[in-house]
Design a protein around this nucleic acid. Structure first.
Length: 361
RNA sequence: GGGGGCGUGGAGUAGCGGUCAUCUCGCAAUCCUGUCACGAUUGAGAUCGCGGGUUCGAAUCCCGUCGCCCCCG
């Protein structure tokens, strides 16, 4: 068994997931390396931070640098010099977020590149084959992601298509080492989510993802759909909440049975000068609430002469070395180092959050 | 001593007779959830150096004055 659960607390689980590039302690957070790079930081910095796994993206890598380059490099691990596990997204979400260029049929998706406008096609089969060539440790099936407020008929179609595509994806898989995860859709409709979960769990795969959430629906819906879905997923397989979430949301989602997360929030917000700081460090899941952290806009003139670290309780390189005033100056002066130091800190915050969550289970 | 130029939000500026004075930076706030993202949106802030005059109407024209700058002696 490649996924082992050690302890549980309510619906929350603590476990270990084995991949061909190492074991990962769950629940975990994946830093996002869409184009084969966690923006602004190096693999050795990721290791120092305690990063267990990163996420990369089929869509972006196909467009640039292109698979011939990735193949020549000997796969993405060698190309980006990251020797830990990599999860790859199938491209499904990009088709959704680049909606104006897409055409979805049962066969697959045709879309235009945001880089040069060229036409590309992605099918469930080609997405898996590309992810295998990338050398992905955890591959995601191509899914049909829709906005949270589309008509039920559209959601139903997306659910049916996602199931059909998942079955084709698993069938197309050739790699013996890579894992493949299927994705539950269904928008914010209870019956659709249930239908999708029941269909998807009939397909044998290594893990299951909850997709199509954190796309603008209410938090209440997001939590409700997650709880409803995890209840229908097999207990002995990891559950991945795709694309989320904010710090307190992650805690809430773990409480509803989620094991894996990825989100651009810590890295993107870092580059925009929004830093996460601890206000208290809880030892139990119920003690987190919504107020265990604060968001600091380091660009504010408030910090111009503040010589304290961003977060005195944080052990990251940024906090143990530099002051708020220095970071604020780097942002004001548009020095690239600002992005790196901020990214390191926010990732340290998210990773410590996951570590604390694990210890709380 | 003579001649000329400039004084407009925190900074630098546009406008040079006619609605709520322009833009850039700065400042502030909000946003970002499988990254087209060192991004996006919004807001505050100026009695246009000061005094007087001309005019229906002046940041814009005239006079005086103060400040800064340049050129010639």
């Amino acid at each position: 068994m490649s996924f082992t659960i050690h302890t549980t607390r309510g619906l929350a689980r603590r476990g270990t997931l084995k991949t061909s590039h190492g074991k990962i302690e769950t629940p975990f957070f994946m830093a996002v390396a869409t184009k084969g790079s966690v923006k602004a930081v190096t693999p050795s910095e990721l290791h120092e931070l305690g990063t267990q796994i990163v996420l990369s993206n089929t869509y972006h890598l196909v467009l640039r640098p292109g698979m011939s380059v990735i193949r020549k490099a000997g796969g993405l691990h060698r190309f980006m010099k990251w020797d830990g596990p990599i999860l790859t997204d199938s491209g499904g979400y990009q088709v959704f977020s680049l909606a104006k260029f897409r055409k979805i049929t049962d066969r697959g998706v045709v879309f235009r590149s945001h880089v040069d406008g060229s036409r590309h096609e992605l099918t469930p089969e080609s997405s898996i084959h590309i992810q295998e060539a990338i050398g992905s440790d955890i591959m995601m099936v191509l899914d049909d992601v829709r906005a949270h407020d589309v008509p039920r008929s559209v959601v139903r179609e997306a659910v049916e298509r996602t199931t059909a595509w998942a079955a084709r994806s698993v069938k197309a898989k050739r790699s013996r080492t890579a894992k493949v995860f299927s994705i539950v859709q269904g928008g914010i409709h209870r019956d659709m989510r249930q239908t999708s979960a029941k269909q998807i769990t009939k397909i044998a795969c290594d893990g299951y993802a909850i997709g199509g959430l954190a796309v603008g629906e209410t938090e209440k819906d997001m939590y409700a759909m997650t709880k409803l879905t995890t209840a229908l997923l097999p207990k002995n397989k990891p559950r991945y909440f795709m694309g989320g979430a904010r710090p307190y949301q992650i805690v809430e989602l773990v409480k509803r049975g989620v094991d894996m997360f990825d989100c651009v929030i810590p890295t993107r917000n870092a580059r925009h000068g929004k830093l996460y700081v601890w206000k208290k460090k809880p030892h139990t899941l119920s003690a987190f609430g919504r107020t265990f952290f604060a968001e600091m806009n380091i660009r504010s003139a408030t910090y111009a002469k503040d010589m304290r670290p961003v977060d005195a309780s944080c052990a990251c390189m940024t906090c143990t070395t530099f002051s708020r005033a220095y970071l604020r100056h780097l942002f004001a002066a548009e020095e690239p180092l600002a992005l790196r130091l901020a990214t390191i800190h926010n990732l340290a915050f998210y990773l410590e959050l996951m570590s604390r969550i694990q210890k709380s289970i």
